[in-house]
Computed example of a mutant assay.
Amino acid sequence: MLIAVIAGCEIGFWVVLAAGLVARYPLRLRRTGAALLMCVPLVDVVLLTVTVVDLRGGATAGFGHGLSAAYVGYSVAFGHSMIRWADERFAHRFAGGPPPGEKPKHGRARAAYEWREFVKAVVATALSCGILLLMIAIVGDADRTEQLSGWLTRLGVVLAIWSLWPITYTIWPAKPKKGSATSPADRTPRA
């Protein structure tokens, strides 16, 4: 059941985000759009509530419970940049805004970009692990939360693998192909 709730929350995230952006730009309802965009984090609250209620109701933690903690942690850490990504594209398409920025492809700018993304992953992992530990404490039964403990290791492995990208781009920065022009994104780091 939790896997279906997680899928529903992912769909809900994009539906609420799209509704907020449509209200904001094509419909020019700035306040309504802002209100809808502020509701995007409520999707995470719904998922977290369903997960905790299920565990408090006596369920033994399974894969879905751990996945929901990881989903919430990553959604919180990366949600703002995902919303900004979508907002830039809607602003360009419907409000005459500047073209959306691209991630840098080469050099120090790309390495800096990869390190910023890695820091978000560290925050996401810390939040996810905190939620997992909180769930374990709420249930208070090691037999029922064994799957949650396993997720702590999984998230650590994901973070260790993720660390390879910024390290690689720092040690061996990508260079532009011969004859290609360097884009402005490659010269200035993007936040």
Rank of each mutant, 00 (worst) to 15 (best):
A126M: 11
D141G: 10
E102P: 02
D87N: 04
G156S: 07
G62Y: 00
G156C: 06
H65D: 05
W85E: 08
G57Q: 06
F118E: 01
E146Y: 06
Y71A: 06
P100F: 05
G107C: 08
L67T: 04
D87G: 04
D87K: 02
A142F: 09
L159I: 05
S128E: 09
A160P: 01
A142R: 12
L67A: 07
V139F: 02
W115R: 04
R116N: 07
T125V: 03
M135V: 00
Y71P: 02
G79R: 03
F78P: 00
L148P: 06
G66L: 00
G66D: 05
A61V: 03
L152I: 08
G140H: 13
A126I: 05
W151D: 01
T125G: 04
L155T: 03
E102A: 15
A86N: 08
Y113V: 01
I138A: 14
G130N: 12
G79F: 04
G156D: 06
I138P: 02
V157I: 11
A142S: 14
A91N: 11
D141A: 13
V123M: 05
Y74W: 10
G66P: 01
A77R: 07
Y113Q: 06
H80D: 12
I83K: 07
L133D: 10
F90K: 00
K120M: 12
E146T: 13
E146C: 00
G58F: 07
E102S: 15
